[in-house]
Structures are given as structure tokens and as C-alpha cells.
């Protein structure tokens, strides 16, 4: 059988299997834009991350190691540390505020129900992932995420996002950003396991922890310790360095120009 024919047969099989995988009961139960059932992953676990901002120095080691581990194109980030220079209006004193951002692996992820082909889904362990072979690149999920945690990868032309380095977790390793964090600010773990460091810290600091954009009702599972509530929503800030241009005004530092 030649390759083209074999490909066609596989696709035809997928079409049939796909049709069979939409049980009628599900159609009846799920209202429009409701969360579909989770699938895959370990149902006994719920991965989450706690970021101890008191320990973050804004070195961007997580940004770089994530880029290398997950091969995100330059200019696109699965994680990045927002760095703010804050001035006290009365005293004029300056302070730095560092805010690592990544996918919040929400319990009510707005990116999941919008996907028209169920390519993006939430695993039973809470990790939100994208099936790159199924994704049609409609970018609906990119629009739906209030945290700008998703992008369409210009190289693969499908949706791309943080997976908590699921491939590393499965191999018993820590995510690249956690592994490389010099201050030990990022703590990942299973919040269902009361003995885990993250579960113990959530217990200990319960009243101090904050999440981003809580009013969006997404139930984020990235918890910030040492957070300032003025940074929970989009902070009032002026952009500093926007993008880097050379003397002719041509853009430097981005691998891909505007699409």
C-alpha cells in the first residue's frame, strides 16, 4: 500500500472513530460552552503550582529553560516573568516587582469548551494540554484565555501552551522552569497529596495566597505567595522596552515578523 493511500485509510478510520466517540448522553448533558469531561492523566492527582514571589529575582532562567525544553519560537512564551519598576508616589522610592506568568491550568479553563475539535482538553490530573495532531489552528482558545497563556506556534501552526512539562513529570522529573529556578520560587506538586510540599504550603499560607484575575471565575491553579493585589488584574503600568529595533527601524530580536 502506498503512503498516500495508507494516510487516507488512517484518516478515514479516524473519521469513523471520531463519530463514535461523541456519546449521545454527552451531547444531551453538556450545554453550550460547558466544560466537557476530563480525559487522560492520573485521576488521583491534581497538579498545581505555587510561586513564592518573595524568592523570585526576575532572572528569567525559567523563561530561557522553558524555551530550550519546549522549543517555543523566539518571541513566543509559554512562561515569562513580568518585571515591574514601581514608584511610590509619595516618597518617590523605587521597588521591583517580579511576576512569573504561565498557563494557570484552571479548574474552569475557558480555553477548553471553545475548541471546536476537542484538540485542547483537561486531563484528570488538571493539566490542560493540546493535541497538536488534531488542532486545526483556529486560535479560538488563544482568544478565550484571559491570561495570554496560549499562542499559535508559527512553526507548527497549531495552538501551543505550557503543559507543566507533562513529559518530564511522567518521567519523574520537574518541569524545566521549576528545575532552573535559582531561588526555588516555583513549587509544583499534587495538591491531592497532603504530604506534598505544595499541599503543606497551601495549608500554611492559605489566607495569603492569590490567583490572577479571580473575577473571571476560571479557578486558576497557579497560586502566588507574596502577591500584591494591584497586580492581580492587568496592572496599571507603562510599557518600557517594547521591542528592539535597529538603526533602520527594522525589528530585532523576533525570529518571526508579523504573520
Amino acid at each position: 500500500m502506498d503512503l498516500a493511500r495508507r494516510l487516507f485509510m488512517t484518516q478515514a478510520a479516524r473519521v469513523t472513530a471520531g463519530a463514535a466517540f461523541v456519546p449521545l448522553a454527552q451531547v444531551a448533558q453538556a450545554g453550550i460552552n460547558d466544560q466537557p469531561p476530563r480525559r487522560g492523566g492520573d485521576p488521583t492527582k491534581r497538579y498545581a503550582m505555587l510561586i513564592d514571589l518573595r524568592r523570585c529575582i526576575g532572572c528569567q532562567a525559567c523563561t530561557v529553560s522553558c524555551h530550550i525544553e519546549n522549543e517555543a519560537p523566539l518571541g513566543k512564551f509559554r512562561t515569562i516573568v513580568s518585571q515591574y519598576e514601581v514608584e511610590n508616589e509619595e516618597t518617590g522610592a523605587l521597588a521591583q516587582f517580579m511576576l512569573p506568568r504561565l498557563c494557570n491550568h484552571c479548574d474552569n479553563p475557558p480555553c477548553v469548551p471553545v475548541c471546536p475539535v476537542q484538540a485542547t482538553f483537561q486531563r484528570e490530573d488538571g493539566i490542560v494540554v493540546v493535541d497538536a495532531d488534531r488542532c486545526v489552528g483556529c486560535a479560538y482558545c488563544v482568544q478565550a484565555c484571559p491570561y495570554d497563556a496560549r499562542f499559535v506556534n508559527p512553526r507548527t501552526q497549531v495552538a501551543d501552551k505550557c503543559t507543566f512539562c507533562a513529559h518530564r513529570l511522567e518521567a519523574g522529573l520537574l518541569p524545566a522552569c521549576v528545575e532552573s529556578c535559582v531561588g526555588g520560587a516555583r513549587i509544583i506538586g499534587d495538591i491531592n497529596d497532603p504530604e506534598s510540599q505544595i499541599a503543606r504550603m497551601i495549608d500554611e499560607y492559605h489566607d495569603e495566597l492569590m490567583v490572577l484575575q479571580p473575577d473571571k471565575n476560571t479557578a486558576p491553579h497557579i497560586f502566588y505567595l507574596g502577591m500584591d493585589e494591584r497586580f492581580v488584574d492587568r496592572p496599571e503600568a507603562r510599557p518600557g522596552l517594547w521591542d528592539v529595533r535597529d538603526s533602520d527601524g527594522a525589528e530585532l530580536g523576533y525570529e518571526y515578523a508579523e504573520h
Partner: peptide, 26 residues
């Protein structure tokens, strides 16, 4: 043309998703 993977349009029909407005539209 606005899909980044236009040749995968058939996925809309292979994986019908009644809870997504876009899928209903397809």
C-alpha cells in the same frame, strides 16, 4: 483561510463538539 491548518477542516466533522459555538457553526 483564517485557520492556521486549513487542510484539517475535516476535523470539524470527524470530532463534532456540540458544546463549542464554532463547531455548531461548522
Amino acid at each position: 483561510a483564517d485557520l492556521h491548518q486549513p487542510l484539517r477542516f475535516w476535523h470539524f466533522y470527524a470530532y463534532f463538539t456540540p458544546w463549542s459555538w464554532m463547531s455548531i457553526g461548522s
